[in-house]
Amino acid sequence: MLDYRSIARDVFNIEANAVRSLTESLGADFDDAVSRILELQARVIVCGMGKSGIIGKKIAATLASTGTPSFFMHPGEAYHGDLGMVTPEDVFVAISNSGETDEVLKLIPFLKDNGNYLVSMTGNRDSTLARASDSHLNIGVEEEACPLQLAPTASTTATLAMGDALAVTLMKAKGFQPEEFARFHPGGSLGRRLLARVDDEMEREELPFVESDASVTEVIQAMSRGRLGLAIVKTGSSYGVVTDGDVRRAVESYGVGIFEIRAVDFMSKDPITISVGTRVEDALQLMESRKITSVLVADKGVVVGVFKK
């Protein structure tokens, strides 16, 4: 019976060794490729066929999301018109493990005539593609994880790692910041934290306001109506807050006499308040530091919303 986990571990080891070997094969061509991209402030066009193309799409996506304008171009489509999208200032990254992929090699005459800087990723430094390149990044591996040595496995992992190395190096060279990453990922959690304002996400409709002389029953009714786990107490020109926890503590303190007290007697005075326009990130950091889950949002001293985690 096959030992499935043993097979999986062998795959992990082979692919880990493939990535580790990239450290030894990395040369000055990597520096040249990075420098050229930075010098031209260039778009990076990634091209590859088959499995190399699939990896190329991921590399292009990583570059684009980390501050280097990039897109993937299928070599077949390129040869039939998409080369019109390539400007002389673009850096062209061609991926082919053998370095002899016909669909990719057909593009070389155009790229040379167009004046493009050509970066190749191949497993054969003596291949046609590698020799035609301005910079060659060696992605050669000693063996594939595939037992038949046919399916690209370790070689595609190495290619992906090389692409990540290129993207991360460019990130650091450009001083790429989290705020910039968030701009390209507005739909993600980081985008929400860094780009969104509390105004965009706060609760503003039917806020659970009560007067300072409101009874406990009125406070609880307001809390149930608002469904925010709190009631906002108006005390002249300022505000207080009653939370679920405040109600429980009041019950423990006053017992049956709780129905004789008013909101002002057990509210939290001077609650933490933030201004409209505050970044979600800043609001969340404040709430985390104070170990609270809700905060009042004010506009010129008037509470206009409640922001919750």
Rank of each mutant, 00 (worst) to 15 (best):
R192K: 15
T159P: 04
G188V: 08
A158V: 04
T157Q: 02
V216E: 02
S189E: 13
R225V: 01
K172T: 10
P208G: 08
D199Y: 08
R197P: 03
T153H: 05
S212M: 03
T157P: 07
A151F: 11
E201T: 13
R125S: 11
V168C: 15
V216L: 12
R192I: 09
A231D: 02
A173E: 14
D134G: 04
T217M: 09
G191L: 09
R197Q: 14
N124R: 14
L137R: 06
E144R: 07
S133W: 01
A151H: 06
D200T: 13
Q149T: 09
A182H: 12
E206G: 05
K172M: 11
T217D: 06
M162D: 01
R225L: 06
A158S: 10
R227S: 14
E144K: 10
T128V: 01
S224E: 13
G226N: 07
E218P: 05
R225M: 03
R227H: 10
G175Y: 10
A214F: 00
E203F: 15
G187Q: 14
D213R: 14
E203L: 13
P152K: 10
S212G: 01
G226W: 00
R227N: 11
E201L: 15
T217N: 03
D213F: 14
E143L: 06
G163P: 04
D200E: 15
E211C: 01
